[in-house]
Amino acid sequence: MAMVASRAGVSGQTVSRVVNDSPRVDPATRERVEQAMAELGYRPHRAARALRTGRSQTVGLVVTTLATVGNSRMLQATAEAAEERGYALTLVTAGDSVAGAFERLAEQEVDGAIVLNEASALVSAVDRPAGLPLVVVDAPGAVGLAVVHSDHVGGAAVATAHLLGLGHRTVHHLAGPDDSFAASERERGWRETLVAAGIAPPPVVRGDWSAEAGYAAGEALRSASAVFCANDQMALGLLRALAELGRQVPADVSVIGFDDVPDAANYRPPLTTIRQDFTALAHRAVGLLVAEIEGSPGAEASAVVPTLLIDRASTR
């Protein structure tokens, strides 16, 4: 650092401010320091910084599985959001034991952790590690913790209202697992929208998020004229099942999904769906966590990220 300061003609404190991305450095000086760092091959030493600051510049991500599309996309988005803020990411899988995941994170001396989706529901059942800031994504009633989630209820309501607006007398629902916060919220949005329209909700058909579950639900939904699926993967399986049953989408039945996975536009037909903004979810979660780690929490203790209807060819 002293060599960088000498080459750039600045103080060591100025170099430190540039390294820590402080706004208290004018652009010309920052450019000169960064040029000197590049010429000398200077890189901040993470272990030394941890000794000096008491922080490892690493955050943990706790998941139960990466097999679902939402979790894998959140992993990618969270890694990118953490890197933008100068933090490394450590992934731990919880299985049925969030407590064990917290212990492994404590051993690695992470500065804080984000608990994702299915794992979030397990947090309230364990003792939270003292001194470890936490943010949970999709958590039911996580008292005392920052919570970030998509507007599942609002997205489901928009999907259901869209189908009713197309003239369908009712909307059937292919729901996610009954122990999932996201699934229950999407089911609630569907149900409340039908009730508000004076329509008795038909029986729910339940799946497990997979395309196989959507395919298996085809027989139960073969007579439906409109189906709101709790995610795009189940919608994909349902599209195949309906085709094999001789039901054309959208001529005979409208199908709408949730998530807007990258392949949704290439389903046959292209899938109308509710888009979740995984990038925004990750940035809000990482932002809340880093604010707590660095002692500058904002006014909000939680965040709800809007969803968006993407109208394609599977509904009419």
Rank of each mutant, 00 (worst) to 15 (best):
A303P: 09
A183M: 09
A156T: 09
D232P: 03
A119I: 04
D208E: 05
V110C: 10
S56W: 04
A235F: 04
W209K: 04
L61W: 07
T29P: 00
M37N: 11
Y215N: 02
V33R: 01
T272C: 05
L221S: 01
D232C: 00
A196N: 09
L288S: 04
T14Q: 03
G41T: 13
T272K: 04
T93G: 05
Q57Y: 14
A313G: 12
A200G: 08
A8N: 04
E109Q: 15
D96C: 00
R284N: 02
F278V: 12
I199W: 04
V286F: 03
V205Y: 02
S16K: 05
R104A: 14
G295K: 11
G12Y: 03
T65I: 02
A77Q: 12
A99N: 08
T279C: 02
R240F: 02
A216F: 05
A8D: 06
I274F: 01
G95T: 05
A157I: 06
A99Y: 06
S223N: 10
V136M: 08
A156I: 05
A82D: 01
L221K: 02
G155H: 06
L40T: 12
V148T: 03
R186M: 06
V4S: 08
L75T: 12
G131S: 12
E292K: 13
S22E: 07
A101R: 09
S180G: 07
A182V: 02
A183C: 07
